[in-house]
Write a protein that binds this DNA or RNA. Structure first.
Lengths: 247, 247
DNA sequence: TCGAATTTGTGCGTATGTATC
DNA sequence: GGATACATACGCACAAATTCG
C-alpha cells in the first residue's frame, strides 16, 4: 500500500507528538516549511495539518502557528458500584472531590418514546415518556450533557413525575423510584465514542466534531425504569470505573 | 460566528445522518451535486466530505459515491463486578456469548517502567517490569489490543512471572496473583478515547485515525499489581459496565 | 505607533489516476 | 468503452490574526 503524501506527513508528525518528542504546546513547522521539507504543494501540507487537527492532536492559531494541543486539566468522573450510596448526586460528589462547584440546569417535558429509547426501556415505540435535558456545570461552565427518559406509565401522577421538581428534586433516580415503591437493582452503562454534533458542541463550547464519550445508562429493577444518554467531552473528563473483584 | 461553507455543508449532512434521515448505506449527493447545490467550488464540497469521513460517519468509494457508514455488527464487551468469577478469561466468555471464537496471541519481555506506567503501578520510574503485548482475536480476526505491565519485584522468579506461560497461563491476573499469595481486590478502569495510531490501525485493520477507546485498567490489592492499556475500536465494540445499586 | 512579514483559514480551478457502473 | 465519481495533488488568491522590528 502506497501512502499518500499527506498521510505520510501526518503520520510522522503524529508519531513525534505521541512519543513526546513534540510536547504539548510545542509549535509544529509552518505549512510552508512542511511543504518545502517534503517537496509537496502547500495544499498537501495543509491537508496533513487538517487531519491532525480533526484528530484533536493539534490546534492552529491564525497568524501564529500550529501547536501540539495542550491538555486541559483533566477531571475525573467516578462510576463505581457504591456510587448511589454517596449523599446527594454523584456529579456533585465528583466535583467536590476536585474542588469544583458542581451544579446543573434541567428542563423536563413529556414526549413519545423514539424507537431506540423504547427498546432500552422495554416499552412500545411512541409510548409516553418524561424527557429531561440536563446541562451539568463545573464552576458555572457547561461540561457535560445528559438527556434522560422515564416511562410515564411508571411515574405519571406521582410525586416524582418531574425529576427536578417536588419533594425528591435532584435526589437521583434510585431514591426517587424508591419513593414510589419501585425497586432499582443495577445500572448498566454502555460506553461508546463519536464526534460531537453541532448542537452539543455549541452548548459545551467545544469545536464541532470534537471527540465525546457517549454513555447510555439504564437503571433497572424488575424492569427498566430510566435510561439516559450522557455526553462527555473526552478532553475534559476521563471516566473511572471501579470494579470489585470477587474473591 | 459565521460558519465557513464547508462546515455548514458538513453540519447539514451530519444532522441528516445522525437523525436517521440518511440511513446507513445511503448514498450522499456527489461532490459535483453538493457544489452545485451550495454554490461552492468542487474543492469545498470535497473538504466537507473529508471532514465527515475523518469523523467516521461516511466512507467514499472511488467511482461509485460517498455512503453513510454501515455499522459493522457491534460486539459487546461486558465489564461487571463479577467478571472475574466467570471461568477462564472474560474475553472468551464475551465472545462465547456472541457465538464467536475468542483467542489471543501474546508476547512477553522485561522492560523498564516508563513514567506513566510507574505511576500507575506505584513503583519508581525505570524499575523492572514484565511487559506483555496481547492481540485478541474473534473468529481469527484481530479485534482488540492490550499491553500489560507487572512489577518484576512482585512476580520475578515465581511460577507466574510470564502471564502466558507456566501452570497458570492465560488464567487471568487475579488467579495468577493468588497463586503467589498476592491479594487482588479491585479493578479500576479509566476510559478515554482518541484516534488510532498508525501501528494500532495497521494491526487492527482499521483506517489510521479511526476512533478507539482506551481503557487503562489497574488491578489493585494491598498495592497495584498489574496495569494495562486496552485498545478497542469503537465501531466494533461497545463497552457495557454493569453496576449494582446499593439498597 | 506603524508597517511589513509570516502564518493560518478559507476558497477556487485544474489536472491526473483509478474504480465503478 | 464511455461516463461518472472519488482520491490525490498542484498552484494560486485573499482575509484575518499574529509577530516583530
Amino acid at each position: 500500500m502506497v501512502q499518500p503524501a499527506y498521510q505520510r506527513i501526518a503520520d510522522e508528525l503524529r508519531e513525534r507528538i505521541v512519543s513526546g518528542e513534540l510536547e504539548p504546546g510545542a509549535r509544529l513547522p509552518s505549512r510552508a516549511a512542511l511543504a518545502a521539507e517534503y517537496r509537496v504543494a502547500d495544499s498537501v501540507a495543509l491537508q496533513a495539518l487538517r487531519l491532525l487537527a480533526s484528530e484533536g492532536l493539534v490546534v492552529g492559531r491564525s497568524g501564529s502557528g500550529t501547536y501540539v494541543r495542550e491538555k486541559p486539566e483533566l477531571r475525573r468522573l467516578t462510576r463505581s458500584w457504591y456510587r448511589e450510596s454517596r449523599d446527594g448526586s454523584p456529579f456533585r460528589a465528583d466535583m467536590a472531590a476536585q474542588r469544583k462547584s458542581g451544579g446543573w440546569r434541567a428542563a423536563s417535558e413529556t414526549a413519545e418514546a423514539p424507537p431506540a429509547i423504547a427498546e432500552r426501556l422495554a416499552i412500545a415505540q411512541g409510548d409516553a415518556v418524561m424527557r429531561t435535558r440536563y446541562t451539568f456545570l463545573a464552576d458555572d461552565e457547561p461540561v457535560m450533557l445528559s438527556t434522560s427518559w422515564e416511562p410515564l406509565a411508571l411515574t405519571g401522577g406521582t410525586d416524582v413525575m418531574l425529576p427536578e421538581d417536588g419533594p425528591y428534586a435532584g435526589r437521583g433516580v434510585t431514591e426517587r423510584m424508591r419513593a414510589i415503591g419501585v425497586n432499582v437493582d443495577v445500572a448498566t452503562e454502555v460506553v461508546t465514542a463519536r464526534a460531537a454534533l453541532t448542537a452539543e458542541a455549541t452548548e459545551l463550547g467545544i469545536p464541532t466534531g470534537a471527540l465525546v464519550i457517549v454513555i447510555q445508562r439504564t437503571y433497572t429493577g424488575d424492569r427498566p425504569v430510566e435510561t439516559a444518554d450522557i455526553i462527555v467531552p473526552v478532553d475534559r473528563y476521563e471516566l473511572a470505573y471501579v470494579i470489585p473483584v470477587e474473591p
